[in-house]
């Protein structure tokens, strides 16, 4: 990794992000959802927001903002044939990935910080939650890079976004509809966001292992896609 190249890519992608309307709306989503949730909870007269709701906001920030922006940025480089130009310059694929990830992480964290502030999330979250979020961020990074590099167009990424949203963002809600011991609950326990909720409720190894499992799986996927992108015949 070359910091000069990472910086060049970062500056370019930050400018490009700011000029791209379809990406700029993304960080607004978690903030709007947070505001809506807050209204609902206040009207219902509840004291604090259920942890599942907090986690849909966190998941929304990582899935809708971070995943979508990383994947869209790479898919667009593929679609417009600009990735080749970058790879033929002194920039390596790792420089390009790191530059883009920093841009989307920066925007994601700003959006998440505001959203959590709206729902008083900082009072509810414990230190262990931030470890979960850190691991989740790694999963999302690998996923975004893999999907974005494999996608030949921005349209393909949009098609991926729906299952990602349902698989990640709304999975904790299932616990509200399904009784304890149901197979569906066992299955969703293996989804990363549910693992984060479980980790919040009780610190055990199981959810941490689930998150590491996802990191390894997505990491392998990303490495395969990256090595294919480098060759590109």
């Amino acid at each position: 990794m070359n910091m000069n190249n990472v910086n060049a890519i970062f500056q370019k992608d930050l400018k490009d992000f700011m000029a791209n309307m379809s990406l700029l709306v993304l960080p607004i989503l978690p903030i709007v959802i947070a505001w809506l949730y807050n209204q609902t909870v206040e009207t219902a007269g509840e004291v604090s927001m259920p942890i599942e709701m907090i986690y849909t906001i966190i998941a929304m920030a990582f899935a809708a903002v971070m995943f979508m922006s990383i994947a869209t940025m790479f898919a667009e480089e593929n679609e417009k044939h600009t990735l080749r130009g970058l790879l033929q310059s002194p920039a390596s694929i790792i420089d390009i990935i790191v530059g883009k990830v920093i841009v989307s992480l920066f925007i994601t964290l700003v959006s998440l910080a505001i959203a959590l502030f709206i729902v008083d999330g900082y009072e509810i979250l414990k230190p262990i939650d931030y470890l979960g979020m850190f691991l989740f961020m790694i999963i999302i990074t690998f996923m975004g890079v893999a999907v974005g590099l494999a996608a030949k167009s921005v349209g393909t990424v949009s098609a991926y976004s729906l299952p990602v949203m349902f698989g990640l963002v709304f999975s904790p809600m299932i616990n509200n509809f399904v009784e304890e011991g149901h197979v569906l609950r066992t299955i969703v326990d293996y989804l990363p966001v549910n693992a984060m909720v479980n980790l919040h409720n009780e610190i055990t190894w199981q959810p941490i292992l689930v998150l590491f499992g996802w990191i390894v799986a997505m990491g392998i996927l990303a490495v395969i896609v990256i090595s294919r992108a480098k060759k590109d015949d």
């Binding site: 000069n4 910086n7 500056q11 370019k12 400018k15 490009d16 130009g85 310059s89 002194p90 920039a91």
Partner: peptide
Amino acid sequence: DRSALYDRLTVQDNLQLFRRLYQ
């Protein structure tokens, strides 16, 4: 004809990227 530029960026910003990369 496979070479491409970043549409949303200015001429200068496009060249700025490669200027930085090539130092």
